[in-house]
Design a protein around this nucleic acid. Sequence first.
DNA 1: GCCGTTTTCGGCCCGACTGTTTTCAGTCG
Length: 590
Amino acid sequence: MENVDIARTLRETADLLEIQGANPFRIRAYRNAVRTIEALTRSLQDMVAAGDDLTELQGVGKEMDAHIRELLQTGQLSTLNAVTEVVPRTLAELTRLDGVGPKKAKRLYDELGVESVEGLEAEIQRGTVQELKGFGARSAEKMLRAIGDHRKQQGRFLRAEVEPYVESLQQWMESLDGIERLEWAGSWRRRRETIGDLDLLASYVGDGTPVVEHFTRFDGAVRVEAAGSTKGNIILRSGLSVDLRVIPPESFGAALHYFTGSKEHNVHIRTLGVKRGLRINEWGVFEVPADVDPETVGKDGGRRVGGENEDEVFAALDLAWIPPELREDRGEIDAAREGDLPTLLELSDIRGDLHMHSTWTDGTASILDMAEACAERGYGYMAITDHSQAVTMVGGLTPERVREQWDEVRAAQEEIGDRLRILRGQEVDILKDGSLDQPDDLLAELDVVVASVHSFMDLDRTQMTRRVVRAVSHGGVDILGHATGRLLGRREPYALDVEAVLEACAEHDVAVEINAHPRRLDLDDRHVARARELGVRVVINSDAHAIRGLDVMRFGVEQARRGWLESEHVLNTRPLADVLAWLEGRRKRG
DNA sequence: GCCGTTTTCGGCCCGACTGTTTTCAGTCG
């Protein structure tokens, strides 16, 4: 059983316990354990086999340890089985609907026998839901819309999909006078790879109704869900939900911190505040005198000690300002206290791109055109890495064709002169057994070799791990491309022990790629952070198949920042000479 | 169910909005 399966089972248990009305802190304990498990790069199965003490993991105590072991041994969780005796398993899906939580789900089940989203829809159409105490026609309508949204938008939006809305909404809001500051918060600001909804904050003096009204008149809005004096919500054609909050200037920094999250980060920050007699909320940071019962102090009670600017929230806790990308409660608060925050990499640090395609396989631009485009983007070097022959669909290159391609590389290099160095590369397929799709003599002559999996993606974890580890141990591979093969919103990562692969990369000095394509962003942020810990060199590549494809680099940089990377951890921030020296050193060790 | 610069029991973040109420529960972020 994989970590994801264990996490899913524990999460389902928490959802059902919540519907059942169990102790909220018990439920939170399950969710905390899920969070820890999802952040692990090591497999729990391996940890148990190695005799590791699971209770050393944050949020895992005696009971969770037993749950995990039971799941690994039997594939079952008796606690979950007991809960499903009382609450049907499908009820958890109901709480995925906007506006339906555990309490409503329970009542719908108890009083109407609703067990699923379909069942709820049928009952609303029969008119029975509207009759329940506390449910009216408006809630029924709202639930129907939520059902529609649920079906339309399974999952989240890619950053790249949301970006155009951010830009047009920004322009629209800037066209209104009187807004002093305008900032995006939430997962967009934290640069998450996918976005659930957008949060926009506007600083404004006085009653915010005109700002909210202007917001709701945005051209792309198909529905207005809420419009008051401090908050508005609109739904865009794509189903994307956008929140606006109007904030008084003296609270803007506190609100920006609060609405940026993550939730876990905020909880940790507030807990630190409580220990110092501070109340931290979206309105500011307030000192609550020790002899006053905090319960009797209002939301803005106590002496205000900060809130206009975001750094004041951190300063009140003697913390340095934390970049939004790091605010996931994964150690950034301790680092901010110790002065150990990383100086995160910037897009402008990138000096080259070592993975892209041309018309020789499935790219749409010639080698020269790609090179010109790279030079325009200020790069000093790039690598043409067309597919090898195993990728038959796109006309992958045989060894002979690769050698022919070098003539064109040479010609393009002459044309472009010393503005840019074009490296002779290949994206070589990792075959089913972990061998490589080009002969060793060719690999040795190439400037740079990216190795990737494009076939047999359904191997089991053991076979897949052995396959990839064998490839990176070969000696002829410089970079491991898109390591887990995931396609966000479309395809799950294949079963792979990423920890073992990263260890092999560290051992053989193979760089691991962050594939910057917004649908890949593979490795993910946690794995990137683990690569850093293990001292694995990271390279950020566009995998461009067209000139415009080169511009996804920014998404890769954002992912790297979320993985705590500094410029020094990333191969393609180095000057050409350093990159060549590294590649040549690898060739010699071969 | 977890956890410990208030340490093995008694806590566990905090406020706003919605729809339904007439004082509030539920949901959300």
